[in-house]
Amino acid sequence: MGNAMSASFAPECTDLKQEYDNCFNQWYSEKFLKGLSMENECSKQWYAYTTCVEAALVKQGIKPALDEARKEAPFEKGGESADSDASK
């Protein structure tokens, strides 16, 4: 693993992603796992990164399929199928 960080699907967002990832990984290990954090930190890096990603999702035409999947398996349900009990 080392310092190798994964790229973003949108090359223009890769730098912002790596800045965010660096911050998140540290927060995750040092604070979250230890039960020391009550808030999702790295908001500054997150904002810059997510703004870039949102635009790229639209530009690359991924948004429609993503919206469909979000309807089917909502984030709020932890990605569980919305109709999991009535699965075909």
């Binding site: 994964s6 790229a7 973003s8 699907f9 949108a10 967002c13 992603k17 965010y20 998140f24 995750y28 979250f32 039960g35 954090s37 009550m38 808030e39 999702n40 997150w46 990164y49 997510t50 990603v53 999702l57 993503l66 984030f75 932890g78 990605g79």
Partner: peptide
Amino acid sequence: VAVDVLRRELDSTGTRLTSE
């Protein structure tokens, strides 16, 4: 070739982290 975080939320108790 790439992994992106689209959404990430920590619940109010700080013990449950959800990521998309």
